[in-house]
Amino acid sequence: MGAEFVALSLPPMLIGTLAALACALPGNFLVLRRQSLVGDAISHVVLTGIVVAFLITGQIAAWPMMLGAAAAAVVAVTLIEVIQRLGRVDAGAAMGVTFTAMFAFGVLLLEQSDTSGVHLDVEHALYGNLESLIWLDAVGWSSLLDPAALAGLPHELTRMAIVFALTLAFILVLWRPLVLSTFDEDYARALGVPVRALGLGLVIVAAITAVAAFDAVGSIIVIAMFICPPAAARLMTNSLVHQVLWSLAFATLSALLGYILAGYGPLWVGLPNTVSAAGMIASVSGLILAICAVAAPRRRG
């Protein structure tokens, strides 16, 4: 049990949890700022960025793909802003125009280019492939102390950890201005907080998180984790600090419970195969939100 668990289940569980935490953290502010769907828009356009990066470099490598995805996110955010201002269209419609068109373009590029030799397709982009992120060098719990084995950890784990640390640092360092500009933008501006820059910074952090998490776990988890844990946490408490902590707890719970249910749940009910972990994690987070919507103490505001 031990060796198999450490090699096959521990890395994906850790990666899933880190991805969930990294998304839920900025998600708290996105939900409060009525920008929940930014994460949705970004994770759609990330596909296009990755395909373009692949077409330019001709290979599936982490850094070019991350850069391509980040560039696509920036293009999308700019385009949304441009359409909103020049076209005098509401934010939702501007977003809808942008991300569907960019996603369609990504799918078209994918169909047009020869990606048969590499692992790049729409399904992978949507569901990721959490189950495949295994640690082949592990022989048991002792491997956690063995530098040689640790070097063989899936690089997604390191990347997710770095991104989570980055997000955490961003939120902690800019906590006060972020809170001020989220709850009372005019007051924050009067105090000299660069409100627009801060808003853009938050979107960029969300984009970085989405891009990094997307590669490891697919965009469903990204969208679900940006929104469900913070929204559920919002129904638990009136204090923002407590809300953030609740959201992190819900994110962790979704990731772990979702992974376990996907991996072992089918065996319990007698089905032979496992089901999609990404899908199950999103489902669990939705279940948590549903429970909070029915029973949480501060659900009515």
Binding site: V31, L37, I221, I223, I227, A282, G286
Partner: peptide, 19 residues
Amino acid sequence: TRVPEDAAIGAVLSVFFGF
């Protein structure tokens, strides 16, 4: 609940799709 509409939309789309 006090979940804003955009968050409700995002939650429903991701959770239903995930399921």
